[in-house]
């Protein structure tokens, strides 16, 4: 736990306790935090997937069709579902934390935290609907 070199008069030997590598397992709240952090890996995976899509699009129609058929293979579909699920959790936890970082005031009246979170969800919904409309109607 510690190393000691005896006691020196008027110079107390402090005890320094090291943080365990497994600190995040010691409390449920720490563990929840680590889970939230891990979801970022899936967000990164979603970004990589999107970039691959754009790269295929750039290479022309054949490459795009090949990429899309690769995407629709069952294991890739399953992996995409997992990535989507964790990206969703990441977004929800992010939006729920947003009011902590933002103190918005309308004139002199502070906007309640729930309303700030609701604003984020609303923007998310509007952007998602707009994208869905563009994709489904072909622009």
């Amino acid at each position: 736990m510690t190393s000691h070199s005896g006691y020196t008069l008027h110079h107390p030997q402090w005890l320094r306790r090291r943080v365990s590598t497994w600190w995040w397992l010691s409390r449920w709240r720490y563990f929840k935090f680590i889970l939230r952090e891990i979801t970022s890996v899936f967000v990164a995976a979603a970004v990589v997937l999107l970039l691959l899509y754009v790269a295929a699009l750039r290479r022309g129609p054949d490459a795009l069709i090949a990429f899309q058929s690769w995407l629709s293979r069952p294991p890739i579909l399953a992996a995409s579902a997992v990535v989507f699920f964790f990206t969703l959790i990441h977004s929800i936890t992010w939006f729920n934390l947003a009011p902590k970082a933002m103190k918005v005031r309308l004139g002199n009246i502070p906007v309640p935290p729930a309303l700030i979170a609701a604003g984020h969800y609303f923007a998310w919904l509007v952007i998602s609907l707009a994208l869905a409309w563009i994709i489904l109607t072909g622009g």
């Binding site: 709240r29 720490y30 935090f33 934390l97 902590k100 970082a101 933002m102 103190k103």
Partner: peptide, 20 residues
């Protein structure tokens, strides 16, 4: 992590101060 705010006995909410 947000634990600072959880344990603060005076409801200071230091996590909010940092994020802001």
């Amino acid at each position: 992590v947000g634990e600072c705010t959880q344990v603060c006995p005076k409801h200071v909410d230091p996590a909010a101060a940092i994020q802001q």
